[in-house]
Write a protein that binds this DNA or RNA. Structure first.
Lengths: 184, 184
DNA sequence: CTTGACCTGTGTCTTGGACACAGGTGTAAG
DNA sequence: CTTACACCTGTGTCCAAGACACAGGTCAAG
């Protein structure tokens, strides 16, 4: 019953301090639970939304978002309606955040999770999707690069040009002359 | 009255073929208009939305969009309610498209146009805004670059790894192991 | 007269959350 | 006990720059 006792909370990777807030609940995700206390407060292991968010370094809104679109399916405390996130939800969310870091869209992730939920290997899908996303990212990169070069070129050229008032058919000579000479 | 006759349509930069559709209207944006015809069909020079769009190589939806947010203020044919885009609208839209090419947001453009509409030089605003946007674009570029590198690295590493079925706490070993080793 | 191409205004969709709001809950202090 | 405050819920809206849909009006050709 001490902090040093190992239990399923190990998945929390070193954030032992928050165990303080669970004193008196025996174990959270382990066995040996006191049924009376558990049923009242936290059915088979729970954390609330803000705690879940903090553990993975995101906002509560992010956790709520993934709950809303049903990527996370927390239980619900009958007494007060609060959501109860389990270790399974923690693993899912950690996975989702990892996948987002790799450029997968939320829709991609839902597809991947569908495979995993049906015990099928999501790996072929993952390989196919990252190929797509990589191509898109490379295209995006080229476009952003071209845009940056245009912008830098504009700043450079404009540094030699004076301000002018607009005329009938020229609203801003900086912008319009720059674009015009681009066409040469 | 022939196609070779020069008039204000010159601003259409070489797209002479569509003058065919204006036969009988005398000149469109010039002088020497036949008042009777003009008042009936097209008050002091007009093109309709699809024609305007085609001339600048965008979709009719884009023209409608800028009309909706009041960057373009076409006249309105009393008889049929059709919008009538003038040379002024053409110049504005051309300006807008140029500015978009330089990374200005629509809101930026509205600010710039406000200056121009009040006969004030928009140039100081333009210089300030492009500095901002350039910084943002550079940040964006760095992020996209990092993302691409992560993705390429993942594809490379995954090429040596087999597919696996999901386990209790590992939904996709490719993604989760990749992210995990990133933290080293 | 019908067909088809065009026009209108309006509303909704896209991404990945962020923010707002009304109302319920839990807890510690006064 | 009351009050304050932090937290929770669901729902709705917002962002950018258009794209798309839809119901209904217009117009010229066959």
């Amino acid at each position: 019953m001490t902090k040093s006792r190992t239990n399923s909370l190990d998945f929390l990777s070193g954030l032992e301090l928050m165990i303080d807030s669970y004193q008196g609940k025996e174990q959270i995700f382990g066995v040996n639970l006191n049924p009376a206390i558990v049923r009242l407060s936290c059915e088979e292991g729970c954390v609330k939304v803000i705690e879940m968010a903090r553990r993975l370094g995101v906002t509560a809104d992010t956790v709520r978002f993934y709950t809303r679109i049903k990527i996370l399916k927390p239980g619900k405390n009958k007494a007060n309606g609060y959501r109860e996130y389990s270790e399974k939800d923690y693993n899912r969310l950690r996975f989702v955040l990892s996948a987002r870091q790799l450029g997968f869209s939320v829709e991609d992730i839902q597809e991947i999770l569908n495979h995993a939920d049906n015990k099928k290997s999501p790996c072929p899908t993952v390989r196919r999707l990252i190929d797509q996303r990589l191509h898109e990212t490379e295209r995006q990169l080229r476009e952003t690069l071209k845009l940056r070069d245009r912008m830098q070129q504009a700043v450079l050229e404009w540094s030699q040009k004076p301000d002018k008032a607009p005329t009938g058919h020229m609203l801003c000579h900086l912008i319009e002359e720059f674009t015009a000479e681009e066409r040469l």
